[in-house]
Nucleic acid binder design. Sequence first.
DNA 1: ACAAAAGTGTTTTTCTTACACCCATGC
DNA 2: GCATGGGTGTAAGAAAAACACTTTTGT
Lengths: 251, 251
Amino acid sequence: MLKNVLDNKENYQPSLSIDCVIFGFHDNQLKVLLIKTKHSHEWALPGGFVPVDEDIDDAAVSVLYGRTGLKGIFLRQFATFGAVKRNSIDFSNRVLNFYGIPLDEGKWYTNRFVTVGYYALVDFLQAVPQPEGKNEIVEWIDHHVVPDLILDHKKILDKALETLRMELNLMPVGYNLLPEKFTIPELQKLYETILGRKLDRRNFLRKITAIGILTKLDEKKSNVAHKAPNLYSFDQDKYNEVVKNGLHQGW
Amino acid sequence: MLKNVLDNKENYQPSLSIDCVIFGFHDNQLKVLLIKTKHSHEWALPGGFVPVDEDIDDAAVSVLYGRTGLKGIFLRQFATFGAVKRNSIDFSNRVLNFYGIPLDEGKWYTNRFVTVGYYALVDFLQAVPQPEGKNEIVEWIDHHVVPDLILDHKKILDKALETLRMELNLMPVGYNLLPEKFTIPELQKLYETILGRKLDRRNFLRKITAIGILTKLDEKKSNVAHKAPNLYSFDQDKYNEVVKNGLHQGW
DNA sequence: ACAAAAGTGTTTTTCTTACACCCATGC
DNA sequence: GCATGGGTGTAAGAAAAACACTTTTGT
């Protein structure tokens, strides 16, 4: 909470923040966890400050844990944003005003903040949005219909998605975004949603299985319209290995 | 200069710095511009602080300009480093001591600094290393034989090179690293040096020309041992277009 | 029985890799 | 004239893309 941070500002890295783009997948939609604070009509990415005795990567883990209750999640730094005008003094003053903090006391907060962007891939069903107090609404929002965001958060979100799309070429995705057991069509829809285009079913199957990270279960999805699709799970060892070593390269 | 910064610390973003990995290419070596300060036996990446009224990207441009006299250069942010122990208080104190700055006065400088890493690709022959004062030695050093670096600068350098290697798959490289007119073998050696492995001449030619960024000049390299190779230049429009739109993708 | 989604294989094309010979120049 | 690097083409293999029919299930 901002008030707490300001009261202990010597414990926080000055003028530095963390913003997290938390992706989830549900209803064939790529969703982003967004926060609406009552002092703003706009939404925001979940973010926080960096304790002076904490690595920035760990601070990002804390933000993620605080907002979703999840730990040990895929979380990756993708860019740092430090335009002079990225947080306007006007915005800062509105925030301070909302919390009833005198401008003088909130001076720490009104400078330009440089923010380090992280993106996370989480299991939508396991992540329970956790508002801090009554002033917050935390919601999963389809990335296609994100409302207006504060400051440069839209830019941060766009960059995160761009990075995720690029990293699809370097690593597999799905663990953390899908439930433990899933079907190939579900995985394909995840890829299609991230990439924003349709893929061929047969070619997708061949390519995704060739990576060698899938275990075909002796089980079919039940209670489903039409032909029951097979269930798969990730072979976690191989999955991690591939994430570590990377996928194909060009040159 | 640190003393100047400390005397005007309210003009600088607190606890934030910029470090630049400046790559050049010469003698078939990928070189990195490094600085040795007389107060240290180790070398350092050229870096600097961020004026509060300057975008971090612009601050990086300033660092590059200050060290090489070059502007309008390929410069890209690649990662931000913020481990708690990345700059030890021991190191900070030694620096302050060297400049004869009382510890008290230099308190601003002894906190953990978060540093934003940028890498640049510059034309070795056009970049004139510019030491700041007599306490500095600025030198191009073959990336294979970089000496011990201060703090986590080795890690920063490694990450820069890793990023550069990866980005070879996404964009062409050469403009800025090579003189205006160059030969295919030179360009190939650049690629080989960055990637750290040999490439097949014939396949390289096919692949690099297929990108459509090269203009074959009606001119051969003169005064050269053995058969004179053809000179090429980059078609700047197409080059920039490809850098913007990216190269091939996987999915 | 039919609509809707799932499963599966083959062919074509494209890209990648491997490989060998002749050419021009400086010494 | 010979050693050294530059220039060029082709054939084989691998990967990607295009494509259609059969199967299962709920209604």
